[in-house]
Amino acid sequence: MLRMEKPQDVVAPPADAVPAATPVEAPRIAPDTVGDVTARDAVICVRGANVHYGDKHALINVSLDVARNEVIALIGPSGCGKSTFLRCLNRMNDTIESARVTGDFRLDGQDMYARDTDVVMLRARVGMVFQKPNPFPKSIYENVAYGARIHGLAANRAELDDIVYGSLERAGLIDEVKDRLDDPGTGLSGGQQQRLCIARTIAVNPEVILMDEPCSALDPIATARIEDLIDELSEKYAIAIVTHSMQQAARVSSRTAYFHLGRIIEVGPTDKIFTNPSHKLTEDYVTGRFG
């Protein structure tokens, strides 16, 4: 696995001189990307990822690390490949028959796409929260218990109860639902459903949580609650979040990657990306000139 000796500070050239800026700091790892794609204490390392949907080249030569206990935001205009990238990280693209994924994906140094890698195990370690809240048409309790049950995490009913209550508590939902755990999960409000989906994900005790625009279907108050939750969860999990809202990226993440037409244009600390981007395209996007 390639790893930089130490991350170097990016010396940002003036914005108007950037268009063809070649990153000096990591030419071998990510020739298209400005900024440092590596991270200390990385749990996921991706190098040279390419995804084709049939003839469409959706992800071009992307490299990026996700560190433990960090929230990394993936931003960019629609169709730029950020969701595609996220779905590669727990092999959800396997379900799309026309999708072809190449490149080096490693979870704790282990090749995710190797022949002997178990996809069920991988998805137990890398959980995912989707754009639209998608609780199962079952009770609230069953929604949270399902993952623990299929993976055999609880030896008895008491342990299962512990997992369910604990997960609902960490998802900040327990006070709202503790009296109606047998009610259908789909009867909750949109924001509650999304927190239920987060509780369902953390009930399996994953190492990484992928979130694909988790707030795009929610109102501002529900969004604020989810963002607080992401903040709390980042103490325990690595979180990669795709978002269309730059304010959200700025609020919740410590690092940000900007995607454009299938490539990562720039990666860096969130405050730098939003206040002092190095690449012209990034600047155009974060200042709202397009996208």
């Binding site: 727990n90 959800m92 998805r123 959980g127 369902r200 994900t201």
Partner: peptide, 8 residues
């Protein structure tokens, strides 16, 4: 997706 996402 929900089912696959938590490792079913």
């Amino acid at each position: 997706e929900a089912a696959l996402g938590i490792g079913a």
